[in-house]
Design a protein around this nucleic acid. Structure first.
Lengths: 337, 337
DNA sequence: TTGTATGCGTTATCAG
DNA sequence: CTGATAACGCATACAA
């Protein structure tokens, strides 16, 4: 592995000159620069980023902390698409990405912030973290610049990007209400997720603005799980048969509801309308295809990385980015009979 | 950020002692070690991995090169699940993962091997690389230890992991043949992919062992694209209406074939049997659910990382890992009428 | 058992 | 325009 020292020797100059020549400083004779460049190429030289980072105390690396980088995320491509966005943005901004896996066993031994400090990452993007994750707090306090995906937290070194979940839910609900539905239930996730709370807000808000009553017993918790949503939906629909539509906080749960309807012999969308959330790939392949609120997952990732790099370079005071989302009407919704 | 120097000062010892105490060397007085450890904790010390890597010339990092880390991979979760496996294995072996994005524009400026050398990765895992990718050759020649996913290439510093594609195709075909099919077509991918060639081999082999004729015009190229497969399947089935079954080299293409059948009014599986390959998430949600050859993508990733780390530590002479795959019979296959 | 000195590859400071 | 020299944080050969 050739170093600047080798180049210096071969070109008959000092390492200082080599460094400056290669880094495009202006105070070096064009001739010597050319010579040095030629030698560098000849030696197939690559600068050692480690050494550079060490002396500059800038690693140009950002850490990616994904709490559930495992197969369970496979159905719902959220994680993957966000990662793609992050990757592209990081690449555009010339940052490298290092992947921290947070296998729970290891978390015991080594904390997030330790991991970050060891690897000298300049900042972190955290994804899939629940609001009650103890490690969230840790990173926040560690004063390492940090961008959260879908966790609403702001601070000097902390920002987040999310979509407008209240509005998203409202859109879904308005669609249902405009169709003529009056008895609309909600299949929510669990309460540790901020987004659940937001979507519930939207649900309530839409009902209120339409002058419709809000019933606690119309709201079930599906924990973002397909089977759980299925059993909950069966309960909901047998206990309150007057329900003609269900708004779900995720597509996966909507799939569960679809299944419940099938078990109960209620036809979709004629006898029950279902709206999902996320627009996962499966949504358009469901039968019938799912009406849903789409989030641009790729853009969420992209903006996260952009926000972080901007923060790192103190280019912005902004600490949050809220993206729009969009209602996609497919075949799972119709007017009530 | 505390360094060993700070600790040394505060504990009243030399940096050497600190280094050895913290790294568990035996030749240090238990008392001083305790004292040092306490100080380290007090200072919230984390070793600087960069500096360590520099001096040890071991980065304990492996590079992940994914040729198409983008949204197009979203339907087929292959990339994601493989990554999960890689991540877990790397974590188990205490290696960090750095993500190289290979946006084609940047490839011009900086080659793979340059990227690797800059970041001082000890080895690389490459995924989604086509056999004719010029950069493949580059990495091979660069003598950086490398593990390829689904590209059959072996060498001193090069290994690969793949599944037994010939056998997988054979299983699919035998299933069809046992069902009584005699006119079986194949929807293949493109020929730059080694796996396509292998699966074709299996297709031919199975026909031959059953004493069935092999027709060139029974094989179409769907390029692993759903719409392309659809149009190709329409052609196939209108030109040769005697075909009663199609074996597809990917589930995505099988989905396209399903669509083609629908357009042609041929019922699945009564009037046409379809077998896919991969067992992507969508497969079980298709109508009817797809019979397919499943690969354990997670394990592919896991084994890749294991192989690489073993190579890095010269723990093995093995350079390839072939995983089994498994036929999953669902609703898209039946005996011919 | 502990400390001194040196080097890893790079950039930065400052003097020539 | 160029070159010594120091420094980044750490590990290690060698000396004490």
């Amino acid at each position: 592995m050739a170093t600047i020292k080798d180049i210096a020797k071969m070109a008959g100059v000092s390492v200082t000159t080599v460094s400056r020549a290669l880094n495009g400083y202006s105070d070096v004779n064009p001739k010597t620069r050319d010579r040095i460049k030629k030698v560098a190429e000849q030696l197939n030289y690559s600068p050692n980023a480690l050494a550079r980072s060490l002396v500059m105390s800038k690693s140009h690396t950002i850490g990616l902390l994904v709490s559930e980088l495992n197969r369970s995320g496979a159905k719902d491509m959220f994680t993957y698409e966000v990662m793609c966005g992050i990757n592209d943005a990081a690449s555009d901004e010339n940052y490298d990405l290092i992947l921290f896996s947070t296998n729970p066993v290891k978390q015991e031994q080594k904390s997030y912030s330790q991991l970050c400090r060891e690897r000298q990452v300049e900042g972190v993007i955290m994804q899939g973290i629940k609001t009650d994750d103890p490690y969230l707090e840790e990173v926040i306090e560690s004063n390492i610049p940090c961008v959260l995906v879908d966790v609403e937290l702001e601070g000097d070194n902390v920002g987040y990007v999310s979509t407008d979940n209240v509005f998203g839910a409202q859109m879904a609900m308005r669609h249902l209400i405009n169709l003529g539905h009056e008895n609309i239930a909600m299949m929510n996730g669990h309460n540790q997720a901020r987004v659940s709370q937001r979507r519930l807000e939207g649900y309530v808000k839409a009902l209120e603005e339409a002058g419709l009553p809000v019933y606690d017993h119309y709201v079930a918790e599906g924990d973002y799980l397909e089977p759980k949503a299925e059993t909950e939906a069966v309960k909901l629909l047998t206990d309150q048969p007057e329900i003609t539509a269900i708004f779900c906080a995720s597509d996966l749960m909507a799939l569960g509801v679809l299944r419940a309807a099938e078990r109960l012999g209620r036809k979709i969308p004629e006898e029950l309308s279902v709206v999902g959330y996320d627009d996962i790939v499966l949504a358009q392949y469901a039968h019938p295809p799912l009406t849903t609120v789409a989030q641009d997952k790729y853009q969420i990732g992209y903006e996260s990385a952009r926000l972080l790099t901007a923060m790192l370079q103190q280019k912005t005071k902004k600490r949050k980015v809220i993206l729009d989302n969009q209602l996609i009407v497919r075949g799972s919704t119709a007017p009530p009979k």
